[in-house]
Amino acid sequence: MSIISVKNLIYKYNEDEEDEVTALNGLSFDVEEGEFIALIGSNGSGKSTLAKLLNGLKEPSSGTVTVDGIDTTDKPHIFDVRKTVGVVFQNPDNQMVASIIEDDIAFGPENLGVPPKEIDERVDWALACVGMSEHRKGTPHRLSGGQKQRIAIAGVLAIKPRVIVLDEATSMLDPRGKKEVMDVIEGIRERENMTVIMITHFPDEAARADRVIALDRGRIVLDENAHSALSDVERLRAYGLDAPLPARIAYELRRRGIALEGEIVTNSELKEAIWRLK
């Protein structure tokens, strides 16, 4: 069984009112356990709305979202949904509930009624996962953006979710912070085999995923292997999306009649393709 299953999902803002807006228009896709998915799309494509539908913060106007077999509109079981799918949001400053880091991370397991001793262990583990153990007793507001976002990730990890959704979690960070967060995500994937859904508008971040789902004006326009999706410059452009730089250069070179072989997404792939021709 898929860990998340989305069927014919439609979501409308201000439903049945004059200013009704259809944000998501008939999405269907499944997420298997252990997958690393990048969800891309320009601003206004409905990406962030989708994130909130995946753990029942919003309810579909029609269609269904099923998490581990539970419908997200199933009120009595909503906490089983949220226990399974954890979401990290965009703004690192707006996710802290407590003024001491360990108290903030303990918030999730406390809500779930985990015994005190186990909460303590989870806090230790979550902080170690994001490499912030030495800050346990500190306060978040003196930290850098990247560090704050790592604390937010730890707060979600402490719930021990099986899927972690990152809703543009790096978009407000500087390059160093972005790198910190991306490294943490890859570390978690390797060690904990967690399913990751990363919402982003940076093509080079998407290149780290296994599978890319692209949204354009509320519809899925691409859903395939990340590598082949990101190497297809023309198709991405048609949906207002950018390809990674090496893919763009390869595209231009091919237009000039230089027949580079294969799908090109990374620097080294471009390098190899050029030297194979020379």
Partner: peptide, 21 residues
């Protein structure tokens, strides 16, 4: 934002809640 973050982390008031400390 905070309300969303709290909901996502399974907040449901005092019901069934434990304390680390």
């Amino acid at each position: 934002d905070l309300a969303d973050a709290m909901d996502s982390r399974c907040y449901r008031g005092a019901k069934g809640r434990t304390k680390m400390k």
